[in-house]
C-alpha cells in the first residue's frame, strides 16, 4: 500500500499514535490561539457596530462557531463510532468517546452565549426559539452518550455501546431539528428573527470564519490530548506504557 495508507495504518497502533499526538498537539494549539487572536481582533475591534444591535452582536463571534462545532464534533463522534463498531479499532473507540466531552463543552458554550445574547435582544435569558431548543436537545444527546460510556464497566464494551448510541443520535439530529422547527412555527410569535444575520457584511464575515478555523484547530489539539490520556489509562498493562511510567517515577 502506498505511503499514506501505510502511515495511516501505523497510526492505528497506540504507541505510534501516542508519540504522533504528543508531537502535533502543541502546534495545533498554537495555530488555534493564533487564528483565534486574529479572529477576535477582527471581530471585536475592526468590525463596525451593527446598525440594529449595536455592539451586542459581537457575541456572534463565539456563539456561531461554537454552534457549528457542536454539530461538527457530533458528526466526528458518529463517524469514529461507526469505524469503531465496524472494524473494532480500539483507537477509533477512544477517539469517538473523547469527542463527546469536547462537543458537550461547545454546545454548553453555545447555550450560555445564546442566552447572554438573547437577554439584551429579546429581554429574557431563555426563549424556546427553534435553534436554542434544538441546541438543548443536542446537549442532552451528548450527555446521554457520556452517561452510557461511564455506566458500563468494561471500557471496550462501553465504547461500542456509546458509539452505537451516537449513531442513533446522528440519525435523530435532523429529525429533532425538523420537528422543533415545525413545533416553533406552530407556536410562532415568540421571537423576532434578528439573531441570525442573513446578509452578513464581509467585515463581520472573515472574523467569523477565522474563529471557526480556530475552534476546529482547538478541537484537534484537545482531542489528541484526551486520546493520549485515555490510551495511558486503558493500556496500563502494555510495556510501552510501563516504560513511559517508569522514568517519570524515578525522578524525585
Amino acid at each position: 500500500m502506498n505511503t499514506l495508507t501505510l502511515w495511516l495504518h501505523k497510526l492505528g497502533s497506540p504507541p505510534t499514535f501516542y508519540r504522533f499526538a504528543g508531537a502535533v498537539r502543541p502546534w495545533l494549539l498554537a495555530a488555534a490561539l493564533l487564528a483565534g487572536a486574529i479572529g477576535l481582533y477582527g471581530g471585536l475591534v475592526l468590525a463596525p457596530a451593527d446598525y440594529q444591535q449595536g455592539d451586542a452582536y459581537r457575541i456572534i463571534f463565539i456563539h456561531v462557531p461554537s454552534a457549528w462545532m457542536g454539530l461538527f464534533i457530533y458528526a466526528c463522534m458518529a463517524a469514529a463510532g461507526f469505524v469503531a463498531l465496524v472494524w473494532r479499532i480500539k483507537l477509533a473507540e477512544i477517539v469517538a468517546m473523547e469527542c463527546a466531552p469536547i462537543g458537550a463543552a461547545f454546545t454548553f458554550i453555545t447555550l450560555v452565549t445564546g442566552s447572554l445574547w438573547g437577554k439584551p435582544m429579546w429581554g429574557t435569558w431563555w426563549t424556546w426559539d427553534a435553534r436554542l431548543t434544538s441546541e438543548l436537545v443536542l446537549l442532552f444527546l451528548y450527555l446521554g452518550v457520556i452517561g452510557l460510556y461511564y455506566a458500563i464497566e468494561d471500557r471496550r464494551k462501553a465504547a461500542r455501546a456509546a458509539a452505537f448510541l451516537a449513531l442513533i443520535g446522528i440519525i435523530n439530529l435532523p429529525i429533532v431539528h425538523f420537528s422543533v422547527q415545525w413545533w416553533n412555527t406552530l407556536h410562532q410569535g415568540s421571537t423576532v428573527r434578528i439573531l441570525g444575520p442573513s446578509h452578513i457584511a464581509p467585515s463581520m464575515l472573515w472574523p467569523l470564519l477565522a474563529m471557526a478555523l480556530a475552534t476546529k484547530l482547538y478541537f484537534g489539539a484537545s482531542l489528541l490530548g484526551r486520546a493520549r490520556v485515555a490510551l495511558l489509562a486503558q493500556e496500563g498493562g502494555k510495556d510501552w506504557v510501563r516504560a513511559l511510567a517508569q522514568p517519570e517515577g524515578s525522578r524525585p
Binding site: V137, F140, G144, A151, I152, K157, A161, N172, I175
Partner: peptide, 21 residues
C-alpha cells in the same frame, strides 16, 4: 444498557431526547 444494573435514570437521559419529535 442490558448489561448494566440500576440503569433507570440513564435510560431516561438517553431516551427522552430521542422522543422529542
Amino acid at each position: 444498557t442490558a448489561g448494566t444494573h440500576r440503569s433507570g435514570m440513564l435510560l431516561a437521559l438517553m431516551l427522552l431526547p430521542l422522543t422529542v419529535p
